[in-house]
């Protein structure tokens, strides 16, 4: 039932491990979406780091983890602040993580995926940004109207670009500092 990572750490069965991985990453996504708010003085608005964790999960762990933890984590955070947007976040951020992770792992083999920087990440980040911004624009057009949706679009775009860059940097640093993370791919 259990297996060993490099003779040091025993990992339990795959189902328990997957549930644990998704649950912890969901909680991290919710905490960083809800608590870490970076003020933007020009607009008096805030950035959150939810997208950073979604891209980190997509580039480091894998597509299904990114789909589930990205969607559930941001939806949980929204339930506390803006419950109206929780179903939209569940769907859009989940899809964003899935698309980014699938494209990130599309062009390279399993060994190459663990290398330092993967050039397909750039394409994955662009696709993830397009998915998230497009999804939110469509949903907000129905919910709030085309005018407010257009106003929100540049902020979503900027938050995504910053999140993707930070997610790539974190993926590189965490994999270097804590190699067993590579064993959690799902």
């Amino acid at each position: 039932m259990s297996r060993t990572i490099k003779g040091k750490q025993r990992l339990p069965s795959s189902i328990a491990l997957r549930i644990a991985a998704v649950a912890v990453l969901t909680a991290v996504t919710a905490v960083l979406t809800l608590l870490v708010r970076i003020p933007v003085p020009a607009t008096k608005g805030y950035f959150n780091l939810g997208d950073t964790v979604i891209y980190f999960t997509a580039f480091t762990i894998g597509p299904l983890s990114a789909l589930l933890s990205g969607g559930l984590g941001t939806a949980l955070a929204d339930l506390i602040g803006f419950p109206t947007f929780a179903p939209i976040s569940l769907f859009v951020h989940g899809l964003q993580g899935l698309v980014a992770a699938l494209i990130a792992g599309l062009f390279l083999g399993a060994k190459q995926r663990r290398r330092a920087f993967n050039p397909s990440w750039l394409l994955a980040a662009a696709a993830g940004t397009l998915t998230m911004c497009g999804g939110y624009f469509a949903a907000e057009s129905v919910m709030l109207g085309i005018g407010p949706a257009l106003v929100e679009l540049p902020f979503n775009l900027l938050q995504n670009v910053v999140g993707a860059a930070a997610g790539m940097a974190l993926s590189l640093v965490v994999r270097k500092a804590y190699p067993p993370v590579a064993e959690l791919r799902w």
């Binding site: 750490q9 328990a16 980190f56 930070a166 500092a177």
Partner: peptide, 30 residues
Amino acid sequence: LLPQLTSVLILSIRRIPILAMALEMRGVGR
């Protein structure tokens, strides 16, 4: 914030195997 996020992520990820073992002890996955 990147150094802080790195620490938080590593500390969180290190909890995953422990949580998985706790879940397995309660029969999840069996």
